[in-house]
Design a protein around this nucleic acid. Structure first.
Lengths: 188, 188
DNA sequence: GCCACCCTATTCAAATTTGAATATAATAAC
DNA sequence: GTTATTATATTCAAATTTGAATAGGGTGGC
């Protein structure tokens, strides 16, 4: 879904060929916010083209490279774009953190190895928090507030994750994952 | 991936047939933590059976219902289970919030409709926060700390999301999403 | 007693995602 | 100067996910 929205949103600004869309997305850090895979993008473009949300307006051939097909958003596409955004906000689809299940089952694995990996994750998470904040700050003069909200939201989500991982790491070091009956130390 | 881990983790406790696995997962609220779809589960079970991680140990037929095939985890499955958990923790796969892209593009849509939907989301988020906390508290005497960490983590993630949505909602009401150059009001 | 809905248990086709393959040019590294 | 990596642009087969179809039995409401 995000991929369709991103394509429509960018084609709203100007006509592009699919590869060019990926370049713009990377330039705007959209690839940090959603999964961007070439195969999926080309699929989405084909699909939307069949469905009349976008249309090919030009094909540029050159001897050495594959043809570039330039797409433009249609009126139908513009309507669907708005609908999709609202629908997606209404939908309330849950966020499943990819660590929930592994961690819930983590008491079954070697606690030494687990501790080592969690330590690495904590370090990465610290890095991510700083990076996310920096990206937010740098973009204050550059982008509309709608985008700032996403950047600051990402910072806060990263910060929450960091606190979570640290608390968990402490428990692994103390070898407490299998304990029952006591609440977590949630003040730190 | 989560689905495989969940199946292996449960088969570690006792042999079950696929449908039974879904019942246990729901009973333990695992379906709140990962996407649980029958089709995917049956696919994963087939795949793991082919790969020798689990094996069919019994088929129970009855006249009125489809046959139940009961699976058991193999030694290979036990090894892979540990590997998968550690691998998944190491992998550091990013979390893409399904609202990031829609919200980043939200300045293009009708701000009245947007405000209404965001208000609904804020209400739902408040409900989710309370529910998540309640689930954590209720389970303190019941489950190992590894599981509590996941439950409390979910509570904190929900809380972070709530704050994020509220801030965004205020900006939509003030019709500021397209403004540029001022930092967000991040103290509230 | 009947209607509507939920439970049991699995399968399937169709949609979508993934990851690699393709082929050439430009740039960087040593 | 040669080698390795990165950038250009797209396609494809294979893996996986999705959502609906199947089909009989139980249960609650009126």
């Amino acid at each position: 879904m995000s991929i369709k929205l991103a394509v429509l949103g960018l084609l709203l600004e100007r006509n592009m060929h699919p590869y060019e869309i990926t370049l713009v997305m990377k330039d705007r850090r959209m690839d940090k916010i959603m999964k961007l895979q070439m195969g999926s993008l080309y699929y989405a473009v084909d699909k939307m083209s069949q469905d009349g949300l976008i249309e090919a307006v030009e094909v540029i051939s050159s001897k050495d490279r594959p043809d570039k097909t330039i797409y433009s958003i249609t009126d139908k596409g513009k309507n669907i774009f708005e609908q999709l955004i609202l629908q997606q906000i209404k939908k309330n689809e849950p966020v499943f953190h990819p660590l929930y299940i592994p961690l819930a089952l983590s008491r079954y694995v070697d606690q030494g190895k687990l501790a080592e990996l969690l330590n690495e994750r904590v370090l990465k998470a610290e890095h991510d928090v700083n990076l996310a904040y920096q990206i937010y700050e740098e973009h204050i003069p550059l982008v509309p507030r709608s985008v700032l909200h996403v950047m600051y939201g990402r910072y806060e989500h990263c910060l929450t994750e960091l606190k979570w991982l640290k608390r968990l790491y402490a428990d692994v070091l103390a070898n407490k994952l299998s304990d029952t009956g006591t609440p977590l130390d949630t003040e730190a």
